[in-house]
Design a binder for these strands. Structure first.
Ligand SMILES: [Mn+2]
Ligand SMILES: [Mn+2]
Ligand SMILES: [Zn+2]
Ligand SMILES: [Zn+2]
Lengths: 148, 148
DNA sequence: GGTCTAACTGAAATTTGATTTCAATTAGAC
DNA sequence: GTCTAATTGAAATCAAATTTCAGTTAGACC
């Protein structure tokens, strides 16, 4: 119940963001957002498509809307450096990064990146307006350590 | 002079790493490494190929050897999240990351990432053997701020 | 030096994630 | 309801990256 309530609230918030940015709330967009809010996990365009194609959403629209939803701030792009794009939902107050197993691809979230001062310092030193950062930590999970 | 001496020393060191790993020191590999040590900058496979094709090095070999040289620790993969692979030379005692302008792609290096404790903490918490991390900071350079 | 062979190469073919094109559909303003 | 610009899905296309394969070569061994 908590979950579906949260999902509903997030969806309304997202719809409002879309409207505010001048975009329509189309069926593909709603389906994609609902899926992400239910799953609350990162996914590649093909994974998203596999999950929504039964609702008549084409792969092209998946690509287009993942990009658009990220631009509006409903999704965010993440990168595991395996050659695939990935997106995940932006949840309120959730700033995290990923620890990735180089052996099997298993991913663990972590939340204490603590890079605010670095961003400030960089802005001061370079004159850049600093926006955001992406951080990925790599290693080997317990299982993959044994297999070596 | 300092520079060419350094280049020479790095090249010998790299050749030794290759030998040690059981790989041959072929002409394409030497040409690619020489180019990276001279340029000391990140580059995409196509940029590397443009620079070495006049020495008879094919694009396929560029791809293959960038991957191999990275695996041996002579190069390292870097990522600007623009859909292209990039590599740069591993120079002794040089740990840096990139501040990238989302407007024009201009890149500034920085050296004070300070993520060792985070890595240790993650290792302790998760049981992963932590290897390395990748960090990219995004913003807008002075020029691109005006254009907006 | 010469001989040998597994490692390596470049060109061409192929794969595949992502983008572009375009005619048909639709969200939402009026 | 009417209208229209935004949006869609299928197909075509693009381009980065990989695979294939016959020919070449680094370097071990004499
Ligand atoms: Mn995540
Ligand atoms: Mn660099
Ligand atoms: Zn693993
Ligand atoms: Zn810029």
């Amino acid at each position: 119940m908590k979950n579906s309530e949260g999902s509903q609230a997030l969806l309304e918030e997202a719809a409002s963001k879309l409207r505010q940015a001048g975009y329509k709330l189309t069926r593909p967009r709603r389906v994609i957002m609902e899926w992400f809010y239910r799953k609350q996990e990162h996914a590649t365009p093909h994974q998203v498509h596999a999950a929504v194609k039964d609702f008549g959403v084409g792969l092209t629209s998946v690509y287009r809307n993942l990009e658009l939803l990220a631009q509006v701030g409903i999704l965010r792009q993440v990168c595991f450096h395996d050659g695939y794009q990935r997106y995940e939902p932006v949840l309120p107050g959730d700033h995290h990064h990923h620890l990735i197993c180089s052996g099997c691809g298993k991913v663990v979230k972590f939340f204490n990146c603590d890079l605010d001062k670095l961003e400030e310092q960089l802005a001061a030193e370079t004159g850049y307006v600093v926006d955001r950062h992406m951080l990925q930590v790599f290693g080997y999970c317990r299982r993959c350590q044994k297999d070596r």
